[in-house]
Amino acid sequence: MDIKKHKYHRDWSGLPENVLATISDKLSLCEFLPLSNVCKPWRSFQKETLTTHRNPLRGFPWLVMSKGTGSGPKRCFSALENKVRKIKMPKADGGLIWGSFEDWLVIAKSLSDEPDQIYICI
């Protein structure tokens, strides 16, 4: 059989969405997030997926372990991965992590300000 090597460009950025979805189902949140900065099609796929799609690898909340109102990376425990991750949250610096509701983390900045809300993807 004549085996031909095809020279055409394989357009990975143009993968069909259902193929991207099957790939992303096999990734944890930390592995999935960098995809959004690769190219526009992957970015729009990720944006859509994070808000509508529930992945078993990403379905369990992280426990925020940082206390107080300090700045710097916040430490979070991912029970699924059994790992402690540090997340930089510049918006939370100087604020008090007050609690969480659904996919939101509520940060209280000061008594006179409105609580500042940060979306956290879990």
Binding site: R10, W12, I23, S24, E31, P34, N37, V38, C39
Partner: peptide, 20 residues
């Protein structure tokens, strides 16, 4: 998926030959 794991954005662009 295995290839994506542990790669930064730039590394993925290079690996999959994707131009920003």
């Amino acid at each position: 998926a295995e290839a994506i794991k542990g790669k930064s954005t730039d590394e993925m662009r290079e690996f999959f030959d994707i131009k920003s």
